[in-house]
């Protein structure tokens, strides 16, 4: 008689296979190499900056570990800039051919004729990518922490560790957002190239052109004469809100606030609001409160794309090739 525990549930069989496929695939290895190289570069510049700057008692100057992620000496962008730039590409590269390549190879109809539910395939692919991403980001960030510990020689505070963990989670959600967008394209477009190009063009649009377009709009709607302080603030808020339609902007807002505890507000503050404020870094809870909308929005976007992909996939008739 067979024992029950030796049977792996079909869902996890698919997840296992997908994870091994991702890890063995050239594109993941290439993306990983790019991420590692750029991050090493930015860390190196951060460390060289550290050698000259000795810690002081100024509260703004504490949180060395967080600075590893955010400072740069101008030669290379900082760690978070790289993550916000390369993260989407990583997500797109993992998802753009999730469904359509299986369909084109004729393996999708073979797998679906096995006794599994159809959504297993989509869910397992998403989960497998998410697991790989989580391992990647947590280990990357913990490595940075470890190097920092070795080089600086001061252990990180609990708050710093928590902030870095939160940063990892936000990064994963951000990359998952792009992953789901590209999975959606892989369900929608028959050709893997079309879906890859669609994903990359959206990424390019948001990372390069979107800011330009918003600037043009801002120029257009800003009044020429002097206006009141309140009008100026509301104009600034409007522009900022348009900017926040860009997922990259949401990610930047969220990570900056998490990694720079000195950030007190993501919008304009009036002098009245500032008066009486103690110039000290925010505790983690407060920083989280500040960026909660950003995190929620990213998370919601992720879910929306996944939901759309799911709906399309479940309704699709699966024929061979």
């Amino acid at each position: 008689m067979q024992t029950n525990h030796s049977i792996v549930r079909p869902f996890w069989v698919i997840v296992n296979k997908e994870i091994s496929d991702i890890i063995k695939s050239w594109r993941f290895i290439i993306m990983l190499a790019i991420v590692l190289l750029t991050c090493t570069g930015s860390l190196y510049t951060a460390f060289t900056g550290f050698a000259t700057a000795k810690p002081t008692n100024d509260p703004e100057e504490s949180f060395f570990f967080l600075k590893l992620f955010t400072i740069s000496d101008g030669t290379l962008p900082s760690f978070i800039v790289f993550i916000s730039f390369l993260g989407p590409l990583l997500g797109i590269s993992m998802g753009f051919d999730a469904i359509n390549s299986e369909q084109n190879k004729g393996t999708l109809s073979r797998v679906l004729s096995q006794p599994i539910y159809r959504d297993y395939v989509l869910n397992a692919k998403f989960l497998a990518s998410l697991i790989v991403l989580s391992i990647l980001f947590f280990s990357l960030n913990l490595l940075v922490l470890g190097f920092g510990l070795v080089i600086i020689g001061i252990p990180p505070t609990a708050e710093e560790v928590f902030r870095i963990l939160m940063f990892s989670i936000v990064s994963i959600v951000y990359v998952a957002f792009w992953l789901n967008l590209s999975i959606l394209f892989s369900v929608g477009f028959r050709q893997a190239t079309t879906s890859a190009l669609a994903g990359i063009s959206i990424w390019l649009f948001f990372s390069i052109f979107y800011n330009m377009i918003v600037n043009v709009i801002a120029k257009g709607i800003s009044p020429r004469q002097m206006i009141s302080e309140y009008q100026l603030v509301s104009l600034q808020k409007l522009i900022q809100n348009i900017m926040r339609l860009n997922p990259g902007q949401l990610f930047d807002d969220a990570t900056t606030t998490l990694l720079v505890p000195g950030v007190r507000s993501l919008g304009p503050l009036t002098m009245e609001q500032m008066s009486g404020a103690i110039p000290s870094p925010l505790p983690l809870g407060q920083s989280m409160m500040l960026v909660w909308p950003q995190i929620t929005a990213l998370f919601a976007g992720t879910l929306v794309f996944f939901g759309l992909a799911y709906m399309l996939f479940m309704r699709r008739e699966i024929r061979s090739r």
Binding site: V8, R9, P10, R110, V111, Q114
Partner: peptide, 10 residues
Amino acid sequence: YSAMLNGIPK
């Protein structure tokens, strides 16, 4: 892979 999707032990 197909066999394991059918719940057959490895």
